[in-house]
Every structure is written in C-alpha cells, then in structure tokens.
C-alpha cells in the first residue's frame, strides 16, 4: 500500500519472514532466449540447500570480507595498473595467491552444463568477478564437498587444456604453467580460493544454447566459503568473463531478477530477449584500471518520497559499482548518515532493536501483525529512479530484529 504519509510499504510481518517451502516463479512454456532459474543458495528452492542454514549475521560477516576485498582491489588498481604476473610450475604449489586479487562469495546460484556429454553443475553467479571455474577431478590437491558430482574432464570429449602461450593465459591476473598447460589461480576476500588448469570445453546454458570452447578454470585445489556449489560463473566486464567471451553470440547483454525471498526463484537471461517492460536505463561506466566492475552514477536518495539533502559530490567522489555478489549496499558515510536519520525518523513509532553485524538500524516487530515501512528510492544518472522493493529495504534477522539493509563505508573518499 503506497501513498500513506508520503510513500510507505504497509505489509504483513509474516511476509518478511523466510518460508521453509519453495514458491517457484511461474515459467512460461517457451522462451526464444536463454533463461536460467536463479535461486538463493541457502533457501528451500536451491539445489544446494545446506543444513544448518547460515545465520543472518554469518552472511553479513562474509559480506564484510567481500567488501573489504573489493576496496583493496580498487585501491590497488589506483596505484598499480596491473598486477605482476607470476609463473609457477606445479598445480597448487607455485601459483601465488594474493589477498584481494579477486572477489567472491555471493548468494545466488544457477545450474549449467559443462562438457560433452554435458554434466550439470550448480554455480554461484557473480557480476563482481570474471573467471568461471568449477571443481575438477582428480582434485590433485583437494576439493571441498559439493552437491553435484565433481566434473571429470577426462570423460568429456570436448575438453582441452589451454596452452601457456595462449592469450587466454596471459589475460589471467594470476597464472602459471605446468608442462605447457596454463594454470589459473583466484583468491577471494574471505581467503577462499581455486587453483587448477585453465581449459576450454562446451558450456551449455540451456539444451539449445551451447557455447563451444568456453574458457574456464578446472579447479584442482579449491577451498572456501562456496557451500556446496560446484564453482562460480564470472559475469564481470573483464576479458575472460562469460559476458565478454560470448559477446558475438549475446551482444554483451544479460539480465537477472533476484527473488524477494530465499524461498522463491528468479531468472538469469542472456541476449536481448530479456523481459523489457518498464526497464529504465542509466549509463554504464567502466574504469580501465578495474575492468571487471560495472560502475554507475548514483545521484541521490529519497526516503518516504522526500529527497535527502546529500550533495551530489558525495556520490561522485566515491563512485558506485553494482555487484550481484555483495549483499548489503555500501554508501559514503555522509549519505548513509542522512538515510539513517530519515529512516529512523519515519520509523520512530516502532521499538528499536540491537544492531545485527554491520546493520545498525534495527527494529523489534514482536506483537505487530502489520508494519508501515518508508519507501527508499535511489536516483541514478539519466534520471532513472529505482524505488526499492520492501525486500530491498530491510534485512530480516528475526521478527524481533529487522534492520535497514544499508551500511556505510569507512569514509567519504573510500
């Protein structure tokens, strides 16, 4: 219900709480474009659902590691255009792993097929990194437990290692060489990592949408917070990402919808056939020193229909990236302070609750059947306004701890 006291969501408390039952998005029978089902990796719709489900604060703590990694990477790029390439000679022993050289975690997964015949692998999809990788047999050093059978490259008739002399190999941030086979390494902000052979094989996004000779990492030494996912799909803007590698086929176009709860499903599409109704566009900005990331221009924030008094310079100085793998939006402190103040004022009739990890504006809705939450809107360059869904405004720990789902950076220049 909108329009009360400006612009508010009026909702049932129960709609905020996660369900234990999957409520799948209704799919039309036929699409003329590639469409994958997106699920939250910890929810009941996920093929990877784990027991026990991580606590909300655990997910936020992992998110803090990812954001620290993003900051380090962007800061490092500002002083050094490119990381030195290192050469090693053995899988898992000579490739240097560098904190913050890439970024990971993320909570949304899709299932795609690798090899011939294809083997389904459920992977995390991530617009904040480039390299697609999966765990591979024989797991020369070690693999973590995953839901799907671990991919066996020797059983695929189309698998081939990439040569050390290939441009694919020189495009890797971290690479090595073993008997002329190219080795890759990725390490993420939470110290998760994958190391193995950089290879090519057929990637099946759907039964009819097949990408031959797709370059990906075949991981022989993998460890970290990937849950039971088989690996990761890199949808960044860099040379080796799925988006760039399929540019001729899909024109560099992809789209996704992240579901409102962990018990519902969304989609990931490739190509121009995405659902186009009501879509408004803002300019995509790129930075040569950090080509992986998609930047956009955040200009202003509104709460309950009232634009907050934040100078555009505050947003311009920092810059903004969009990332499917970061959970909570981070704002310059000046902007976050204004948002928090306006939100707290609009929520002054509710009992406050203690902070939840990085979230400092929380409410206890115990005893309430419905609540009214002020709408939050983000305004981007080109006059595009994104009025957030309620699921995009709040982060629910429990009914007694529901928090504003924003956090601040360290300082305005961060």
């Amino acid at each position: 219900v909108r329009g009360e006291q400006g612009s508010y969501h009026k909702i049932s408390i129960h709609s905020l709480l996660p369900s234990k039952v999957c409520s799948s998005f209704k799919e039309s029978a036929n699409f003329n474009f590639t469409r994958l089902k997106v699920t939250h990796r910890h929810g009941p719709c996920s093929p990877l659902r784990s027991h026990p489900t991580p606590l909300p604060e655990q997910i936020l703590d992992e998110d803090r590691s990812r954001v620290d990694s993003l900051r380090r990477r962007i800061a490092a790029a500002a002083t050094s255009a490119k990381l030195d390439r290192q050469r090693g000679s053995q899988v898992g022993s000579k490739i240097p792993v560098r904190p913050g050289s890439s970024v990971s975690t993320g909570n949304y997964v899709v299932t795609v097929g690798f090899g011939t015949p294809k083997r389904d692998q459920t992977v995390i999809f991530d617009t904040g990194s480039d390299i697609t990788w999966i765990q591979c047999q024989p797991c020369v050093t070690y693999c973590y437990e995953q839901q799907d059978p671990i991919f066996n490259p020797s059983a695929s008739s189309t698998y081939a290692n990439i040569s050390c002399s290939s441009t694919y190999c020189s495009d890797l941030d971290i690479s090595g060489c073993s008997s002329s086979a190219c080795l890759y390494g990725v390490q993420y902000g939470d110290n998760s990592f994958s190391i193995g052979f950089f290879a090519q094989d057929t990637l099946s996004l759907s039964p009819t949408d097949v990408i031959p000779k797709f370059p990906f990492g075949c991981g022989e030494r993998n460890r970290g917070l990937f849950g039971k996912a088989a690996g990761l799909m890199g949808l960044g803007h860099g040379k080796l990402s799925l988006v760039t590698q399929t540019y001729q086929k899909y024109g560099g176009v992809f789209a996704y919808c992240l579901p409102p709860t962990s018990s519902s499903t969304g989609y990931l599409t490739f190509g121009t056939g995405y659902p186009s109704s009501k879509v408004k566009f803002t300019p995509m900005v790129t930075d040569a020193s950090t080509p992986t990331f998609y930047y956009l221009n955040l200009m202003a924030i509104s709460v309950a229909g009232q634009r907050l008094p934040i100078s555009a310079k505050v947003f311009n100085d920092a810059g903004t990236i969009i990332d499917s793998g970061t959970v909570i939006t981070r704002l310059p402190p000046t902007a976050y302070s204004a948002l928090r103040s306006a939100f707290r004022q609009a929520m002054s009739s509710y009992k406050t609750a203690s902070a939840l990890s990085i979230l400092d504006t929380c409410y206890d809705f115990t005893g309430h059947s419905t609540v009214s939450i002020p709408t939050v809107a983000l305004q981007f360059g080109g006059g595009v306004t994104m009025e957030l869904d309620l699921s995009g405004t709040l982060y629910v720990g429990s009914q007694s701890q529901v928090c504003l789902a924003f956090a601040a950076n360290g300082d305005d220049s961060d």
Partner: peptide
C-alpha cells in the same frame, strides 16, 4: 567506492548491456 548490493536489487529486472554501455532497472520482475 559505493556498492549497490544484491538485497537492493531484489525483484528488479537488472539489465546489463555492455555494447550500449547502459544498465537498466525494471521493477516487479520476479
């Protein structure tokens, strides 16, 4: 750097068009 995280993107059709250098948002998509 500011980061637009995945909570805030929920239910939007988020469109990346690298060739036209634009990012789109469509509400209520899922």
């Amino acid at each position: 750097v500011g980061i637009l995280g995945n909570v805030q993107q929920k239910t939007f059709n988020v469109v990346y068009d690298v060739s036209k250098k634009k990012i789109g948002f469509g509400p209520g998509a899922c």
